[in-house]
Each structure stands twice: as C-alpha cells, then as structure tokens.
Design a protein around this nucleic acid. Structure first.
Lengths: 206, 206
DNA sequence: GTCTATACCAAGATAGAC
DNA sequence: GTCTATCTTGGTATAGAC
C-alpha cells in the first residue's frame, strides 16, 4: 500500500461522515463533528477532502452502490411471488443493515436531489423501466392483478425504507426500544406477505 | 382586529417559513430566505418570532394539526374494508394537498424528532394504541388476516407519505413532470385496493 | 506528504432608532 | 408598536508550517 495513513484516515472520515450526514442532513452536519468522530483535528479534514460537498458526494456514492446491490435481486427468472418476495426481503435487510444510507438518500431527495439528479435520470430511470416491463409481463400472463408497475414499486420502496427513515418514530412507538431482531423479522415476513397477497391474482390453483 | 399589521405579517411569515423549511430542512433554511419570500426585511422577522426555532415550532404545530385531522378519519364504526379505504384515501389526499407538511414531518423524524418528541410520546402513541385495538378486533372477528397492527399502519403511512416526501423522485421517474391529478387519483385507487386486498381475509362470501 | 493557525463569511440574534 | 443597523458566533476553507 502506497500511503496507509491516507487510506486509513480517509476510511475513518468517510465512516464518521456517513453517520453525521445521516443524523443531521447535509446542512446540519459540520466538519467539526465529523472530525471529532473520526478522531482527527477538524482542519485536517480539508486535506483529505477539499470541501464538505465533495465528502458528501463520496458518502453518497457508497449509499447508491448499496442500493444498486439490493436492486439487483429483482429478477425476472423465477415466478412473481418468489421474485417479489426476494426483492422486498432484500430491501428490508438493506434498511436494517444500512439505515444510515437510507436516511441520507431520503434527506437528499427531500432537498430536491441536488447531488444525485444524474443518478435518478439515468440509472434509476432505466432500472424502473426494465423492472416495470417485468411487472407488465406478469400482469399480461395473468399472474398479477392489473396495476401501474410504479405504484407497486413505490409501495415497496416506501414501506421497506420506512423502517430505516422513520426508525426513530418506530422506536418511540415500540416503547422507546429499537425493534428487536425478532420483531423486525416478523415485520419483514408480514410486509412480504401483505404486498404479495395484494398484487397476486387469486388464481384457480389458489 | 386589534393589530392587523401583526396578524398579516405573521401569516405571511408562517406561510413562507413552511415552504422554506419543507424545501431545505431546519438547518438548511435561513431567516433571510424566509424573509425574502414573505416580502419583509430579514431583521424584521425577529420582531415577530424571537428565534428561528420558535418559528419552526409554530410551523410544526400547523403540520401536526393537519395530520390529526386526517387521523380522525380512521373510524371503527364501518366495516374494515371501508374504514381502511377511507383512511388510506384521506392520507393520500393529505399528501397531495399539503406535501410541504409531510416533508417537514419527515425531516423532523430523520433528525430524531427534537421538537416533536412529546407529540410522538403522547398523542401519536395513544392514537396508535387505540387504532391498533380496532385492527386487533377486526382480526379476532376474522375480517382481517392475522398481522401486527403496527405493520399495517406503517405500510399505510409509508406509502401515502411517499407521494409527498419523495415527490421529486416520482416527478423524475414520470419524465420530469409532476404527477397529474388523473395519475395521482389512479395511484390512490390502486394503493387502497392493494393494501385492502393484502389484509382482508378472503372470506367464504369472496 | 501530513497537519494546523488563521482568515473569511454567512447567519441568527440584539440593541436601539423611528 | 414597528422596524433596522450592528454585533457575535460558528462554520468552511486556505495559506503556510512541519
């Protein structure tokens, strides 16, 4: 490794930045707090990342990568119920394992997506088009009820991401304790069942 | 009216503040921008609202009132399908008519609800408990599939609020144009059908 | 190549004018 | 009672030291 100090410091800064951006949003986050969590003097951050916006973009890149990874689980190969169930489960797992990423994404959209408009216009749009076609195909085959594919996708995104973005509210309504693994897994199963039961056409085979 | 100047200025400030807080979040919003939109010199705002936080709290109060208004449509009187459908429709209408309020609420939860923790702990918690009991009753009566009531409520909140909170993403995926009234009403109908079809027990009567 | 003292600016709040 | 010139703070970024 050519410069292990740089690599190590960049890593700890990115880790700290992801946490702070998730908790405070872009404007609420301060370089001082990120530096403190990274264990570095605040002025030092600007040596590794020229501006706050650049650091934010680097964090966002990691978030979008994780999103794409989960998005890849939506496959046309298997039957609709299995494909949808797998995708919903993957999105629930992502919300559970990387809640900070989901919150940063939500915050970015709320602000009008100044930094990820390109991602929305290209990658996301193509993904929605391709998966929308798959849903249309399933509908045409009589496996799903007729529905605008985007309505289904939005419901899946909204519901799964809610467990990350509104975790604070969920915790409050859970008596102040974060959802246990057991409760979360129950929710995951019920979300999968509720959505699939809602869209699957009740066929002759039941 | 004892002081119409005060009343008029407070109103325009609150209106401007709601828009700016929704677009930029608490930290991103500036008194200068709020003042500009309200058509007042910036320093003047502090005469009507001592601090930025106080102005924010006043805006939040209006947002929570609108939420409560929609929440009141969840009634135990009618049958489950009708009650759920009515509530989901009311939440969709709220998201359409007051998207800024939904965004401010989302942003506040993302930040850990520093200003509305009391609302979550008291009003919201009681509401969830009472409506959860209704859902439990419907399940016991065999009208709904067995499900944790909160899972259902979270799905309704997440999906309906998504149309306000992620409107920018939805617009992008709609080719750059905001959803038309027609498209939105179609989505509303499909969301109602999808969720009710997902939770209603397929009874002998069909 | 790595780090820090310092500059500069924007934003919220106040003291005091009208 | 209404409004504004001014202060202060805290935050990003830089110029320059080690």
């Amino acid at each position: 490794m050519s410069s292990s100090i740089r690599a190590a410091h960049e890593d700890s800064i990115l880790l700290a930045a992801e946490a702070v951006f998730a908790e405070r949003g872009f404007d609420g986050a301060t370089m001082a707090e990120i530096a403190a969590r990274a264990g570095l003097p605040k002025a030092n951050l600007h040596y590794y990342f020229a501006t706050k916006a650049e650091l934010y973009r680097r964090v966002l890149a990691g978030v979008l990568n994780a999103w794409l990874s989960a998005a890849g689980t939506f496959e046309s190969s298997s039957d609709p119920a299995e494909a949808l169930g797998r995708y919903i489960a993957a999105k629930m797992d992502l919300a559970r394992q990387r809640p900070q990423g989901s919150r940063i994404f939500a915050s970015e959209i709320l602000r009008g997506a100044p930094e990820i408009q390109d991602f929305l216009d290209t990658t996301l749009r193509q993904w929605v088009e391709s998966r929308g076609s798959i849903v249309q195909k399933w509908i045409a085959a009589g496996a799903l009820k007729p529905i605008e594919p985007k309505t289904l996708l939005y419901m899946i995104w909204a519901t799964t991401q809610h467990y990350a973005d509104f975790a604070h509210q969920i915790t409050t309504l859970n008596g102040g304790d974060p959802l246990s693994d057991e409760d979360f897994n129950t929710a995951k199963r019920q979300v999968v069942e509720l959505i699939t039961a809602g869209v699957l056409r009740p066929g002759p085979k039941g």
